Simulated assay, not measured.
Amino acid sequence: MTGPTRPEEAAFAGLLCGLAARYPDLPPVWITGNGSAEADTVTPDGAVHEPDRIGFGLVHVDYDTLTRTPKDSYHWYRGLITAHRARTEEAAR
């Protein structure tokens, strides 16, 4: 089978095709994945460890208590931003 098979796939494909038609000079767009919606588990150390899902959500929210727990992704992204800022500031000198 070719092409989208679910409504959300058709909508996403339509969005991408619409962007390409409206803005023909856009650079290529690479779709590499859309994450993995799985239950988060806050471990006894008070963290959400997710080595296979870095980048899928930054903060776990307990909807009963509204407690927010930073995930491993949060710390990874924080490091990425810090490293980028350091390189940018160094280049500006």
Score class of each variant (00 low, 15 high):
36 S>G: 14
15 L>T: 10
13 A>R: 15
88 T>H: 12
64 D>G: 15
22 R>A: 04
75 H>I: 03
32 T>M: 09
11 A>E: 13
86 A>N: 07
10 A>Q: 08
77 Y>T: 10
49 H>P: 08
18 G>V: 04
47 A>W: 13
77 Y>R: 07
71 K>C: 01
28 P>Y: 02
67 T>S: 08
74 Y>C: 05
34 N>I: 10
72 D>I: 03
41 T>L: 11
49 H>E: 03
92 A>R: 12
12 F>C: 11
76 W>G: 06
3 G>A: 05
78 R>V: 02
63 Y>T: 13
80 L>C: 12
30 W>I: 12
55 G>N: 07
22 R>L: 05
33 G>L: 07
14 G>D: 09
25 D>E: 07
73 S>E: 00
43 T>P: 03
16 L>V: 01
64 D>T: 14
8 E>S: 15
33 G>D: 01
32 T>D: 08
87 R>C: 03
41 T>F: 11
41 T>I: 10
83 A>F: 01
74 Y>Q: 04
67 T>Y: 07
42 V>W: 03
79 G>Q: 09
41 T>D: 06
76 W>I: 04
74 Y>P: 05
85 R>M: 07
46 G>V: 01
64 D>P: 10
68 R>D: 03
30 W>H: 13
6 R>H: 13
11 A>L: 14
3 G>D: 08
2 T>S: 15
47 A>R: 15
30 W>T: 12
48 V>Y: 01
92 A>W: 11
60 H>Q: 08
59 V>G: 08
7 P>T: 06
91 A>N: 07
67 T>G: 04
44 P>H: 02
